[in-house]
Design a protein around this nucleic acid. Structure first.
Length: 267
DNA sequence: ATGGTCGGTATCCGA
């Protein structure tokens, strides 16, 4: 058994905000940092700027301008490269690794699910269809595998529970909280995972990880959504120790609109 | 009901 802290953060441009990772490390002390929306091609990955942070083991999959995911680790890891190219788009939304922890290997998946555009209708808005297809494909892929000692994190761009949004009724028609999305995400999770953050926080309690840049005073209005998730396979559930949603990060200078989410577990 | 703000391939597009 060994303690493992896994953090996930949609950083919204790794090169622009690489300096903020110091604050994340100071606040959370994670063993592993999973990033989304890195927006950097692999050849331009800022390895030098990251070197002093102390996470020598990295895997990343990036492209110019959009998307992009990365895993930074204190724990040795190997690229886990068996997953398909989701929806055949080659758009750098998933990277996975096997962590070599003292307690044994842990499989880690880092996802950036499509945001899905504005109109919740796949005939009018292909991005919405892509989002639903992506989560259905992911559900099928995980359902077909035998999972153990696995962790899935990322910006899943869906707030599944009523109290994962500031107003369930007002957001039922808003992409990120529509029934096809929340049902699809729950089906994916039920293919082999439990929600490691809600393990600690009852469903009656509001919980958000994202506040729009368009909210001038995000803390006062608090119109948030929980879009960022940490899931674990049931064999790891008894080892869960704590969760942290780092709300203060929303006020970091030139911060992301998402805040880091971290789970500590014995593995 | 509207519009509000970010980042990057930047005077639009995606979020």
């Amino acid at each position: 058994m060994a303690s493992l802290r896994v953090a996930t953060w949609n950083i919204n441009s790794l090169r622009l905000r690489v300096g903020l990772l110091d604050k994340l490390v100071e606040a959370l002390g994670p063993d592993v940092i999973c990033l989304q929306e890195t927006k950097v091609p692999d050849l331009l990955f800022p390895a030098e700027a990251l070197q002093p942070l102390g996470y020598p083991h990295t895997v990343f999959r990036g492209m110019k301008g959009y998307n992009g995911v990365a895993i930074l680790s204190r724990v040795p890891l190997e690229l886990h490269d068996t997953a398909p190219d989701w929806c055949g788009k080659g758009d750098c939304r998933h990277v996975a690794a096997t962590l070599q922890t003292p307690g044994g290997p842990v499989e880690l998946h880092n996802f950036y699910v499509p945001a899905g555009g504005d109109v919740p209708d796949r005939t009018q808005n292909p991005k919405y269809g892509h989002k639903l297809d992506f989560i259905a494909e992911a559900r099928s892929w995980f359902a077909a595998r035998t999972l153990s000692r696995s962790v899935l994190v990322g910006d899943l761009n869906i707030a599944p529970l009523e109290n994962d949004v500031w107003s369930h009724k007002q957001l039922l028609d808003v992409v990120s909280h529509t029934p096809p999305e929340t049902e699809g995400l729950n089906a994916w999770m039920d293919a082999g995972f439990v929600d490691a953050v809600r393990h600690f926080v009852p469903p009656e309690q509001k919980l958000y990880s994202w506040w729009s840049y368009r909210n001038q005073d995000w803390r006062a209005s608090d119109r948030g959504r929980r879009l960022d998730h940490v899931w674990v396979t049931p064999d790891l559930e008894s080892g869960l120790r704590s969760q942290t949603i780092l709300r203060d990060a929303r006020d970091w200078p030139r911060g992301s609109d998402h805040v880091p989410v971290c789970v500590e577990m014995e593995v």
